[in-house]
């Protein structure tokens, strides 16, 4: 039922014509760079000797939700953390190839990682608010970037909390510690916190895996809203979730991208046997 809705939406999405195989289709989209926010080009990553990502070629589009699915340990988190270079916090990481964010390599020395992370926000698997008040949590990013004016901060906090659909629930207790909220509320505070730096792209690594079904629905609805203003790349091990919310889906397996296509193609007529087996729940 929801899948049909997703289909409808993606069918109306005319930016991408049907591609015969994902390779040629990637070549095409590299040409139309204007629409790609992120492009991975022959990207490889090693943890020591563990070759965790192998020859990744992927384009992600503006104002879309792109999902990354695959069995655990296949490199989904590693890949999404590569996009904002958080993966480099692990000392043994080594990379090859390139990732391009809006026509500029993220490894380009002329820009800083801090600058990249200001434009590319991230929401993590486990809600991780700071041990501070709700207000201070959401205002954190703005303060870090030098905004001190209380009026501006107030506006940033309100706008972000509204953007994350949690304003009504917390507007009367902005000075309470964020730890007093439920897990689902905490996760939406974390989304608000990410929105507060007015990013261009939001990366989400299994943002609902620690949440109950009702909170999950709320966060999913929220993503649909956010899609209008932001580009979202989401890792999920929940295939129904990918089918429900995403426009395009990449299937990762053992460090490779097996298949990347419109979500309805991946779920209804995948080209690769392994994708078919995975989405039909035969392994995972």
């Amino acid at each position: 039922m929801t899948l049909a809705k997703v289909k409808e939406e993606t069918d109306m999405n005319t930016v991408y014509d049907t591609a015969v195989d994902s390779r040629t289709q990637e070549m095409n989209s590299i040409k139309q760079t204007s629409n790609a926010i992120f492009q991975a080009k022959d990207f490889n990553l090693w943890y020591g000797n563990n070759h965790a990502l192998q020859d990744i070629n992927l384009d992600f589009n503006e104002n879309e939700i792109s999902a990354i699915i695959g069995p655990s340990g296949c490199g989904k988190s590693t890949f999404i953390k590569s996009l904002n270079r958080m993966v480099e916090l692990v000392p043994i990481v080594r990379t090859e190839g390139d990732i391009v964010y809006r026509d500029q390599s993220i490894f380009d020395k002329s820009s800083t990682v801090e600058n990249l992370r200001t434009k590319v926000g991230m929401v993590f698997q486990k809600p991780n608010p700071f041990p501070k008040s709700i207000y201070d949590n959401v205002a954190y990013g703005a303060r870090v970037h030098g905004i001190r004016n209380k009026k501006v901060l107030d506006q940033v906090v309100e706008k972000s909390l509204k953007g994350a659909a949690i304003w009504e629930e917390v507007k009367d207790r902005l000075n309470d510690n964020a730890y007093g909220l439920s897990g689902g509320q905490q996760q939406r505070i974390c989304i608000a916190r990410a929105l507060a730096i007015e990013p261009d792209v939001i990366l989400m690594d299994e943002p609902t895996s620690a949440l109950d079904p009702i909170s999950t629905t709320k966060v999913e609805d929220l993503m649909h809203e956010l899609k209008k203003d932001y580009s979202i790349i989401i890792v999920t091990h929940n295939m129904q979730q990918a089918a429900r919310i995403s426009d395009r889906t990449a299937f990762f397996y053992q460090g490779y991208v097996v298949e990347y296509d419109k979500t309805n193609v991946i779920f209804d007529k995948p080209k690769d046997q392994r994708t078919e087996d995975y989405v039909s729940g035969r392994f995972g």
Partner: peptide, 18 residues
């Protein structure tokens, strides 16, 4: 101090010192 809140801060473009 849990690594997760460290990551949250770094992930928003805060420097190490911040």
């Amino acid at each position: 101090v849990p690594g997760s809140i460290r990551e949250a801060s770094i992930g928003m473009g805060a420097t190490k010192w911040q």
